[in-house]
Amino acid sequence: MENEIQDNGLEIVYKKPSTLTDTPLHYCPGCGHSVVHRVLMEVVDELGIQDKTIGVAPVGCSVFAYNYMNIDMQEAAHGRAGAVATGIKRVLPDKYVFSYQGDGDLAAIGTAETIHTVNRGENILMVFINNAIYGMTGGQMAPTSLEGMKTATSPYGRDVKLMGYPLKITELLAQLPGALYVTRQSVHTPNAVRKLKKAVKASFEYQKLNEGTCFIEVVSNCPSGWKQTPVQTMKWIEENMFPKYPLGDIKVPKF
């Protein structure tokens, strides 16, 4: 794509997507949410679908996503984004619908809604931010918290015999016939961000086909919850998260 040349002859190589608002982000410095927001809105911009896109943001750190995304949005109750998105898509089948959910929302309180939304093959995109912790409520254990991981509610480390195992819900969902495209991406390096964008773009394109649910897990970080600097979290993701949650496509459409 050719870059825009300004009147003064300077070339614009990077700008904020028009579908991101000017509202200052409330996310902690270094948090992956803002990058994922940007990627989503870049794709909406590039596909020119602002007037056809409806987002759903349930309870969690991203509950205020509608402050930042300049599209029609619905806030959902904790765990119910899949059901809310279903309701929207069923009455507006020609629109693009996505949900944006955290690990506690999608894989704990909303597990039933998540599984059944994908099992029905709702033609939506579900974006699943997995940072292995409850960020908004102050760093409690999430269903995806790693074995031995210290959180506010597992201060001695997650004892899997007592507290259950890290839930690989993405692999689980990939088993369902309703799932069209299932992939795990991250935002810890510029290259990873580019790959995520490709997956997001593909998922929006797939919605036109009416063939099933697109599901993107984004392995992300939580500097505040993990009690690390943003730079440390990038390393921690690579050393601890990826062995449990390996990146890459888990299910790709066969046409």
Binding site: I54, V56, Q74, A76, A77, R80, G82, A83, V84, A85, T86, G87, I88, R90, V91, L92, A112, E113, H116, R120
Partner: peptide, 19 residues
């Protein structure tokens, strides 16, 4: 749509009503 629960039903209603 037959939902997976009443919890899902009412949240589908929320989404559709909002639309």
């Amino acid at each position: 749509l037959q939902a997976e629960s009443e919890v899902a039903s009412i949240n589908m209603v929320y989404g559709a009503a909002g639309a």
